[in-house]
Design a protein around this nucleic acid. Structure first.
Lengths: 191, 191, 191, 191
DNA sequence: GATGAATGAGGCTTCATTCAT
DNA sequence: CATGAATGAAGCCTCATTCAT
């Protein structure tokens, strides 16, 4: 399918360019060139630059979720499930640094704020395996009785920051460091 | 004092607007309008938009450092000093949410990356009380023997994330939460 | 051919406007308007105003050289070749007064100075039929043993000045005047 | 007189800066700074930048005329008077290269065109010793019967061009060259 | 008179988006 | 469907000129 090909080329090019240069450092024409399509063609697949940015984020999120849920075992103890998730997330981002850079930018932008609000304040209809763990952990008195946003921050704040420094080359995220960091995250939220 | 007035108006307007809309969401003309000055006037105080952004960051950093170092007692135990610093930092940002939003944006931008590099990789000549604590803590076997960037991430990642959520209204950083979060940070880096 | 149309319209508009008002008297927007294109369109054909100015000069120079070399016979006596060239040059400029005004402005600008330096000081790799005549004439003791810049000045200074006055309507360059002026130029440089 | 001091400082600064950088390369503020006066002060002595440019030209022209007429002997033969004038002019410009650069720019600008028109077409009431020589020479059948503009071009075109190249360092105007060039100029206009 | 901070019109350039081919 | 030339609004910045001190 030619259609899908072009779409994917646009997505790939956008990801690489935006991850490296930021939303505002990448004109549509640059994306078109890198994707090997005409500038107007992008608008057959995306309504606007904003749409492109948002939809690219959604595609990435889906990919990440798919990866996270592979092998995820709902019947394991809460701690195991939590550690499984964050370790897989780190694996994913180490393997896909461009995805991390993109998600990070998206998160730190007006786009990301409402998204984050939906997640931590619990938008009805939104499914989130991680938030489920938090709710369950609070219920079962395993986790601290904090708002979900707080648990999220305590658990993911260090990881995101480490990830960033790893990708920028300021630190080397080896197995030992991952091990200790994830344990620290768990200790931070466990009761 | 007219002089200082204009400068301060520009700084204040820039801070408020950029904190809310981001660097790219704020044209110079918007700053001028909000500051109540002509567009050209900004350029009497700052060489360019880039300069404005960078110098505004420096002004904030100086203010923050000044605040942090007030009452800082070099002869207290390492843990006390560490907790003192991060608690004061949180106090500061809770009192000055615009400052936080601005610093966060700066940090997540090309400007901030090289700055962060200098900090965690240790640019010669750069003085940083926090990094000194890390070095001392590693030396005295009080802290984990991680790269400074890792200690920084583990200690500050959660705080920054919490701060953000607090300022965006997703969570309420009360005394209890601050207490527990800062303890968790310490636990994360202590040996 | 639309392509070429726009390019040519821009060139034509630039030439007419700049010839009349000078580089600094012509904003890009004015060129765009006169050319009947959008302001941004100019930048599809030229990188900057500077580029436009420089490339327009080059286009003119090529046209002029092409015209000069038509019918130029390398095996004629030096004097004949010299007179042929300057007469053709005058014919050309009389037929294309805008080209003259443009070249004159370019010559009297920072752009033109380095160009002139390359010509009269002999930049390696630069080919110039006129300078070849000067070199040959000096060698064969037909011309005065002056620096090329001096021969150029003595030979062309009057012509350029006459051209200018003719185009501005201060003098009428008829055949008689051309005849006598070109002879005077030759007399000025011949030994 | 303070007044005159400031005026002169402004003139001097303008001359130096404009000669070097051109009319459009010199903001009023730069002139003010170099002259050691406030920006607004310039406007007490000159109505506008245009006025400044025009009046500066007039001052220079007066100075030059004064210099030219020193030792000028109305009772000498026409040729002697002509050669005397152009030699003095060259002396003057060699001694005052900034004046030359300024006059040249003025001449090659919209300002200079109407001035030149007045000169060569003979504006009533305008006194010009050189044009008098041309008129007299034509009358006495010593000079070619050309329009004054043509005589001017043939006589001065080479000199101006040589002057320019001398000041730019492309040629060295030594006594020999001056001698031969001025003779050539005379030969060019004499009958 | 002198100052220079302030102004804002206007210049150059970029880029998201459209549309004729 | 795809293209990419064309558009023009909008952004950054400069600088001649004014005016309160």
């Amino acid at each position: 399918m030619k259609n899908t090909d072009k779409h994917d080329e646009i997505v790939r090019a956008s990801l690489e360019l935006i991850a490296e240069k930021g939303f505002h450092g990448v004109p549509m024409s640059m994306i078109a060139k890198k994707a090997g399509v005409g500038a107007g063609t992008i608008y057959r697949y995306f309504n606007s630059k904003d749409s492109l940015i948002t939809e690219l984020h959604q595609e990435l999120e889906e990919k990440i979720n798919l990866y996270l849920y592979q092998g995820y075992k709902i019947d394991r103890p809460l701690k195991d499930r939590f550690l499984y998730l964050i370790r897989k997330l780190m694996q994913y981002f180490i393997a896909h640094p461009l995805h991390f850079r993109y998600m990070e930018q998206y998160f730190n932008s007006p786009y990301g704020i409402s998204l984050h609000r939906d997640r931590v304040l619990g938008k009805p209809g939104r499914h989130d395996i991680l938030m489920d763990i938090f709710v369950e952990g609070i219920d079962k008195k395993i986790l601290k009785d904090f708002p979900k946003a707080a648990l999220f921050s305590i658990a993911f704040g260090p990881l995101i920051s480490l990830m960033r420094d790893h990708i920028l080359g300021f630190v080397n995220l080896d197995e030992n460091l991952i091990q200790q960091a994830t344990e620290a995250c768990w200790d931070g939220i466990k009761r």
